[in-house]
Amino acid sequence: MDRDSRIRLSTTASLRREAFGALVYSYKDRRLLFIDQRLLPYLTSDGTRTVGEIADSLAAEGNIPGSRLEKTMALLEGLRRKGVLDEL
């Protein structure tokens, strides 16, 4: 995954918004993830913006996952490997 990647929630996962961010459930392997709201812009992306574009707009707001993109991408890559996110 890199700045130009476009991502979207997997079709076999479900995201439900909660006060703290979201719960994500992966139907395929029954994983349950608690997601902080600061990561939500990435997980609710419909793929029209790149990861880098999302990060830049977040960084402008002082959002940590925006300004620490490399580390954030590692988290997102982890979600991709778990089948929660698809790279388009």
């Binding site: 918004r17 006060a19 719960l23 459930y25 608690f34």
Partner: peptide, 11 residues
């Protein structure tokens, strides 16, 4: 604390 506000549905 995470659950005080209530989840939007049971997990």
């Amino acid at each position: 604390d995470l659950l005080r506000l209530g989840l939007s549905a049971p997990i």
